[in-house]
């Protein structure tokens, strides 16, 4: 079976496909979030060093991972948009930015909530925290640059270039705990050494991460659909053939 995937690069074809996918991603996200929260609060044991405060990890780490991952995905779509001059790619990049910014804000906020009881400070200017704060400004920059330019095509291209240049910060955030002496702890999960956590803690964290990832997909797809309606002047919504028909009659 061969599927012509390239046809979905047209916003008109992508719109109904995204509409069919959203409920699935949303449902699985809700289920995984429920299981993840249950494991995080009722199955995972108390940490011997940090007591119950460590449970913030179940939102902090998924939010922080998503903040970095979404930035890279946004930059990739921006790059594809610039390279192929594809409208849908720019729309994807546009749709990712607010969710990425939200997760960056949440990573910083939950980090402060974790820092206060364990370090005794809401905020320190260490490399990990500072570079994550810069990521928040980058998301804000991408969005503000877009809204400040009236011409859509120029707005697309300018914010895409901004997003691409800023991607250099993502490895800096990720490796900051290795490169510099930070107050922020090192990676609890790594490709080379595996996990340093109890198995149930790790499972709960990974479930929450997967849930956040699926939530992001659902929300971003639905934002892309909004953007398609706002930007394309064709009757694209599904389930209302009468309206389309009326329009056809009027014309």
């Amino acid at each position: 079976m061969s599927v012509n995937w390239s046809k979905y690069s047209a916003p008109m074809a992508f719109y109904p496909l995204a509409g069919r996918l959203i409920p699935w991603f949303a449902c699985v996200a809700v289920v995984l979030m429920g299981v993840g929260l249950y494991m995080g609060f009722f199955v995972a044991p108390t940490d011997f060093q940090q007591g119950e405060a460590y449970r913030i990890i179940f939102v902090h780490v998924p939010a922080a991972w998503m903040s970095m991952f979404l930035y890279v995905v946004m930059a990739v779509w921006a790059g594809i948009g610039l390279g192929l001059n594809a409208r849908l790619s720019f729309m994807m990049a546009q749709a990712i930015a607010p969710t990425g910014a939200m997760f960056t804000f949440l990573a910083l906020l939950t980090g402060a909530m974790w820092g206060k009881p364990t370090w005794g400070a809401w905020w320190v200017w260490d490399a990990r925290l500072t570079s994550e704060l810069i990521l928040l400004f980058q998301y804000a920059g991408v969005m503000l640059l877009r809204t400040s330019i009236d011409d859509l095509r120029r707005a697309d291209r300018s914010s895409a270039v901004f997003a691409l240049v800023g991607v250099v910060n993502v490895p800096i955030i990720y490796f900051s705990v290795q490169w510099w002496n930070t107050l922020h702890q090192g990676a609890s999960v790594s490709m080379s050494t595996g996990s340093k956590m109890a198995a149930t803690m790790l499972t709960a964290m990974l479930l929450m991460t997967l849930a956040f990832w699926l939530y992001s997909v659902a929300v971003i797809l639905s934002r892309v659909r909004c953007i398609v309606i706002e930007r394309e002047s064709l009757p694209v919504w599904e389930g209302e053939p009468t309206v389309v028909q009326k329009v056809a009659e009027v014309r």
Binding site: T46, E52, A53
Partner: peptide
């Protein structure tokens, strides 16, 4: 939450509120 209730619940509640608000 072993005395950390304020920090733990603030984290989870704000995250939930942000997601609900976004939807």
């Amino acid at each position: 939450m072993g005395g950390y209730g304020l920090y733990v619940w603030t984290s989870f509640v704000v995250t939930a509120l942000c997601m609900v608000w976004e939807v």
